[in-house]
Every structure is written in structure tokens, then in C-alpha cells.
Design a protein around this nucleic acid. Structure first.
Lengths: 226, 226
DNA sequence: GTTGCGTGACTGAACGGCGATTCATTCGGC
DNA sequence: GCCGAATGAATCGCCGTTCAGTCACGCAAC
């Protein structure tokens, strides 16, 4: 009955802290503030242990205001995920197109994904941990973004196979899932652990090394592989 | 609303317990039944959306009985995780010791972990999804098992490096986290997707292929490694 | 063998706290 | 003055947990 979600973000242009209290009109700025508050609170306590009033407090708005911009607490999480993943996907698409060949694209993909999280512990935690908590939602509503994401990875692999840069006895879809998992796992343990800035960078570089060699078509003769 | 559930005691459990006339003594059989019920319910609805009464129903016991065996709903999840992970770790340790060299151990580890979940969609889902939901707990109480698990993986890698089977420019700890993530990611997408029995087997084999080549010391071409 | 009793495992209705959501009211901008 | 964004205290339904009873079993007494 209450369809209140009529505010939509025009684009990524989030006019930040313009020193302008300006009008009492609804603003994307307020919506963004709520999302940012949510990241903080969710990261600290997890989705279910987070109180709506805490999010409101972190965002500097009243409890009720949240319901002017979102349908429910669940909707806040979902929107947050949707919003951030969209940004990530957009960045990835642009950056990957710049790379000359599939191996470079693979490396860039890994570096970018982890690089964007580096220095953003809270966001990393929300994405890795809370993504799972809304899995129920994701499954029910079918996470379009998530699938898009996996497909992007799979396409890098399959293009590499076509071009002869990668061995072709491994399924791109399986590789995409495994790579997603590996990135997620690194981000998770990093976010829950020390989370030193720059820590993910080294990990990214190593992961890229592993994958590029792992996907290489050259049959290692020296290895006593059996 | 005001819909009280009917717990038909003995109903579902009667056939199960037919052989042995149940004594009125506390049994870990009952504890195990609760854990199994919990797996079913958690897998279907997720931890937070699961009701204690649903677990009781699935286990064929009364709501209150759960509190004879566990401290709280959280304790049920924690115990479940603890219990199942312990089993997995024990199996892994035994099996890995049988393998002749690190590459075989790595392959076996991957096959075993995914193989044990194959055909157990519900358990896979609880482990991959709910593990995250209790992350808060895991962090606070320090997950000993989880760390043990990562260390087991890291040790396989570092042994391989010492023996010359694996390249030594990659950190075993990073590799362990990435491998954990890859396995977790495969299990997750499998559990949430079609979950065909045998589906994980193929994935396991491919993942092993990737990792073994990826960790191989032979440089296939002029890779400006590192 | 049978009866009666004490023990404690088990039950499930009721409780109580809590927190997401609502809505009467306020108030700034035009 | 009017509109509607923003507020935040009050509401209300939900569900984890409790605990007063129930009853099966083992045992002792006969």
C-alpha cells in the first residue's frame, strides 16, 4: 500500500557536502547520507543487529525520515548493495575496455576490485558479510547485478580462451564463480582482520599471478604433474 | 494470526525411533536431531528469519527442549558450525596425510571439501551463508576452527614451496584465504543455484587444475613475475 | 509380579522486551 | 497561508525464552 520509493538517483553525481542547507526539498543528498550511515552501522554490528534508529543517528536524520526514502530496513540494505555494485560494475567496464589483452584485463579486474575496497574497510565488510545476509533477498528477487558481475568475469575468461591466451579446458562460468569467491574471501578476511591499507594491494597482485599462470595454455613439462 | 503450531510428537520421529524404544534419558541423539532440524530450517530461511519453534518442529521436539541442549538460538548455530567444521577438519587431516606430495594434497583438499558438500545442499548453504551471519560471533569469540582451517590450507602451500613443487613467490596465507574463498564461492553459487549432484565434482576438478598450474614453479613464458 | 513413588526429561502456553514502523505534529520555503 | 518534508514518541505485533506442569521410567517394597 505504501509505495514511497519515488526518489531515484539521477546518476552518480552525488553533490557532496555543498555548504548549502538549501531547501527543504527531498534530496538525493539525504538519501546518500542515509546509505553512508547504513554502511557504518551495518559494518559495525551487522545487518540484523543494527537498529534503524542507529542508522538514522549516524546519518543525522530522524528515524522516520528513513521511511521517506526507503520502504523498509531491508530496502536500505538492498539499495545499498545495488547502488555500490552498480558503481563498481560501471568502473570495471570502463577500465577493462582499456586493457589490450585478456590477461591484462584479468589482472586489472582483480586489482580494481580489491583496490576499490582497500581503504574502505566498512564498505568491504558490508559487501562481503551483508551480501550474504541478504542472500535470502537476493535469491528471491534474483540478483541481477550479481549475475551481471559473474558474467563480466566469465567473459574475460572466455575471450582469453578464444584468443588463445588462456587454456580452454576450464569452464568460464566455474572460473568466474571461483574468482568471485577468491576475491570475496580475500576481502572478507582482510576486513575482519587487520585491514591495513595497502594490504589488499599485495594480495591482489599475487592472486593475479596465480590466476594468469593457472589459466595459461602452456603445458608445464617440467612439473611432475600427474 | 494467533496460529499456534501443532507439534505432533512421535509423529515424524516414531518411525525413526522405532527400533529403539526411547528412554527418557537425555540423549545426544536428541541433540543431533535438533542440529539436523536446524540445518534444514536455517538453509531454507536463513538464521535470522528462522524461528526457534520451526527448528523444534523440524526436529520433532518441543520448543523448550531446545533449551535443554543449547543456551540460545545463537548457540544452536554456533554449535552446528563448530560440530560440522570439526568433522570436516578431521576428515581432511586424515586424507591429506595419505597423499604423496603437495600437489596431490592440494587436489585432494579441493575435491574433499567440495565432495563432502555435494549432495548436501542444505548443509552447504548453512556453511556458506550462515557462516557469514554469525560473523559477528565469529569475530567476537574468535573462530578457532576457521583459523585452523586456513592454516591447514596454508601449510599445504608452504610445504609445496619447501619441496619445490610450488613457486615460492606467493604468500601461503594469501593463497589460503583465496582458496578458501574460491571453494566457498563455488559452494555458495552451487547451493543457491541448481545444486545438481555431481555438479561440484566437475568444478572441483577444474579448480584443482587451475591452482596446480597456477602454483607451478615453471614459468610458461616471459612472465614478468612479481 | 505388581504396585506405588520419586525423579527429571520433556512440553508448550504465556510472558515480556524490543524495535520496525507509523502518524500527528512541527516548521521552513515559497 | 499553504504545501509537504522532516520529526520522533508511541504503538503493536512478534518471537526468544521461561517455567509450571505432565508423564515415562526405574526402582523398592511387598
Amino acid at each position: 500500500m505504501t509505495e514511497r520509493r519515488f526518489i531515484r538517483r539521477g546518476d552518480a553525481s552525488a553533490s557532496e557536502r555543498s555548504a548549502k542547507p538549501s531547501s527543504r526539498k527531498r534530496t538525493d543528498d539525504k538519501r546518500e547520507r542515509i546509505l553512508r550511515g547504513a554502511v557504518k552501522v551495518f559494518a559495525k554490528k551487522g545487518f540484523y543487529a543494527s537498529r534503524v534508529s542507529e542508522i538514522a543517528k549516524a546519518a543525522g536524520v530522524a528515524d522516520g525520515t528513513i521511511y521517506l526514502y526507503f520502504d523498509s530496513k531491508d530496502d536500505v540494505l538492498e539499495s545499498l548493495f545495488e547502488d555500490r555494485t552498480e558503481r563498481l560494475l560501471a568502473t570495471l567496464r570502463v577500465e577493462l575496455a582499456k586493457q589490450p589483452d585478456p590477461p591484462s584485463r584479468l589482472r586489472r579486474l582483480i586489482e580494481l576490485q580489491l583496490g576499490l575496497l582497500d581503504g574502505q574497510r566498512e564498505l568491504a565488510e558490508v559487501i562481503t558479510v551483508n551480501l550474504r545476509q541478504s542472500t535470502r533477498l537476493l535469491r528471491q528477487y534474483g540478483s541481477k547485478r550479481f549475475v551481471e558481475y559473474l558474467e563480466l568475469m566469465a567473459s574475460v575468461v572466455s575471450e582469453g580462451q578464444k584468443s588463445g591466451h588462456f587454456r580452454d579446458d576450464l569452464s568460464p562460468r566455474v572460473m568466474a564463480r571461483a574468482l568471485f569467491g577468491a576475491l570475496d574471501g580475500l576481502a572478507l578476511t582482510w576486513a575482519l582482520g587487520e585491514a591495513r591499507t595497502g594490504g589488499l594491494e599485495k594480495a591482489a597482485s599475487q592472486l593475479a599471478e596465480l590466476w594468469i599462470r593457472g589459466l595459461s595454455p602452456a603445458a608445464p613439462s617440467a612439473t611432475s604433474a600427474e
